[in-house]
């Protein structure tokens, strides 16, 4: 039981770190510190991804999120960071409302999770099952062997299984790519420096 212990240990360390960082993001009034706490939280999440064998996703998380998105966010913070905006207080009443709502929500979610029953949900995963980037790439390209058998539909018929395996994520991938491109162009357009409306008015 050495392996699970390691897994459990790592999980607890990472999960607590992640959770605490996320909570800190919420609690910190200073926006710059929030950004830093978010960085920790995202990194913790990436660690968890590595822990459950999603190496590629974890890597992507680090590269895109931590390296790209968060930098973007920090840029935003810096661009707009003027004295008054660094820390803007929210009223205690609002805080109270929000915390009550948040705790309630959390309770509801946890209650739902605890009541759920998942197929194989408690079976430990062997390291052999960890998915490599190669597998993911093949699956995106629609390589048959890489595509997991379609058991989610509850269909065990081998003949139909064949057709199921033809499924690929190439098209969604492309769509997402194009979508990303469009969004970036749009963002560039929106963020372009232009005369303030107030100046004209």
């Amino acid at each position: 039981m050495k392996f699970p212990d390691l897994h459990a240990t790592l999980f607890w360390v990472l999960a607590i770190a992640t959770a605490l960082s996320a909570i800190s993001v919420v609690l910190t009034q200073n926006i710059v510190r929030s950004a830093v706490w978010l960085l920790f939280s995202l990194c913790g999440t990436a660690g968890l991804f590595f822990l459950v064998g999603a190496d590629f996703v974890g890597a992507t998380q680090l590269i895109v999120y931590v390296g790209g998105t968060l930098v973007l966010v920090v840029f935003g913070v810096m661009l707009t960071a003027q004295g008054p905006f660094i820390s803007m207080k929210t009223s205690a009443v609002e805080w109270a409302f929000s915390v009550v709502a948040g705790v309630l929500f959390l309770g509801v979610l946890v209650a739902s999770i605890s009541q759920g029953t998942w197929v194989g949900g408690f079976v430990a995963v062997s390291p052999a099952d960890s998915t490599s980037a190669v597998t993911l790439g093949e699956s995106l390209l629609g390589v048959t062997d890489a595509t997991p058998p379609a058991k989610l539909l509850g269909n065990d018929n081998p003949d139909q299984l064949l057709e199921r395996t033809r499924m690929s994520y190439l098209l969604p991938f492309e769509i997402v790519s194009v979508h990303l491109l469009v969004v970036l162009i749009g963002a560039a357009y929106l963020a372009r420096a232009k005369r303030r409306r107030g100046a004209a008015a």
Partner: peptide
């Protein structure tokens, strides 16, 4: 914006219940 978010949360809670 914050109130909207709160409403969303409350609505979600309500839906769960």
């Amino acid at each position: 914006l914050r109130s909207y978010v709160l409403f969303l949360v409350l609505a979600a809670i309500g839906l769960f219940v």
